[in-house]
Amino acid sequence: MEFTHFNDAGRAYMVEVGDKDDSKRTAVAKGRIEMGAETVEMIKEGMVKKGDVLSVSQIAGIMGAKKTSDLIPMCHNIPLTGVDISFNLKEDGLEIRAEVKTVGKTGVEMEALTAVSITALTVYDMCKSVDKAMVIEEIALLKKTGGKSGDFIRGEGDEKDS
């Protein structure tokens, strides 16, 4: 197996993508926070003391997507053309979905995964005073389009179906 992010001296480096063609790229990721029914109700009713959990977390997720290259060492700093975070409140938790788009030389999978992660961490932070037992789980890439490696849709040819 050949590692792509190591130079001839065996040290890490960021891969050169300058010669790649620009293409439209998207990535969709998801995650979940298991929480008590009381916490779900507090979020629905806007009763969490730190404020509107979904609005603040949505903004945090967008900011997280924009800062991915500052957090993940080998990620390129790429211009994002769109980031959308959506929520689905269930009686036992919250589902988070992030869709990230760009036109560029490298994909936005890490930006989508980071957006979900930061969104979930912000929900946890805002609700921890009432529910320390929350569990952040099931963060996964659902789909990616564009680029030389082609499209990926979870469940189509992968070993783990989500």
Rank of each mutant, 00 (worst) to 15 (best):
R11P: 00
L54F: 05
M134G: 09
L89N: 06
G146K: 02
G104A: 03
V116R: 06
R25G: 00
P79L: 09
M1Y: 04
V100H: 06
S69G: 08
E156I: 06
L89W: 08
G155Q: 04
M1T: 06
K66F: 05
V130T: 10
V135T: 08
F3V: 11
V56M: 11
K67M: 13
V108F: 08
V123G: 02
V103N: 14
G157Q: 01
G61Q: 07
I62G: 02
H5W: 00
G82F: 09
I33V: 14
A133S: 15
E111C: 11
A120W: 01
I59R: 12
V48R: 03
G93F: 11
H5Q: 06
E16Q: 12
L121N: 09
K90I: 11
L80H: 10
E38K: 15
M1F: 01
E109Y: 03
T102C: 15
N77K: 15
A29H: 02
I33W: 03
I96M: 11
L141P: 00
K44F: 11
K90P: 02
I153V: 15
T122A: 06
D84S: 13
L54A: 12
V130C: 09
S69R: 10
T114V: 13
D70A: 13
D84C: 10
T122E: 05
M63G: 07
K50G: 09
V116Y: 10
A120D: 04
G36K: 13
E109I: 08
K44A: 13
A12L: 05
E38R: 15
A37P: 13
K24M: 07
F6I: 14
L121Q: 11
D131M: 09
D125A: 02
K160M: 02
M63I: 13
A29N: 03
P73K: 11
L71D: 14
V56D: 01
D158N: 08
N88E: 14
G104E: 02
R32A: 12
E2P: 01
D84M: 13
N77Q: 15
T119K: 00
L113G: 03
V48Y: 00
A12K: 03
G107A: 10
T68G: 08
D131S: 10
F3Y: 08
K148V: 01
V40T: 07
D151T: 09
D19G: 12
E34T: 15
A65T: 10
G93K: 03
G18W: 09
E99Y: 03
V100C: 05
I139C: 04
R32V: 12
T106V: 09
S86I: 08
L89V: 10
D8P: 00
G46Q: 12
D19T: 13
S55Q: 14
E34L: 15
K24Y: 14
T122G: 00
T122W: 03
S23G: 06
H76I: 14
I118K: 06
A140G: 07
E137H: 12
A112G: 05
I139K: 07
M126Q: 06
D52N: 15
I139A: 02
K90H: 10
V17S: 01
D158A: 02
E41Y: 03
G146P: 00
G150V: 04
E159F: 02
N77D: 15
V135F: 03
S86P: 11
G82N: 15
K148D: 02
T4N: 03
G107L: 07
A112H: 06
G147E: 00
D151E: 08
R32T: 10
R32K: 11
T106I: 02
M35N: 08
L121H: 06
E16W: 11
R11H: 12
G10P: 01
D19Y: 04
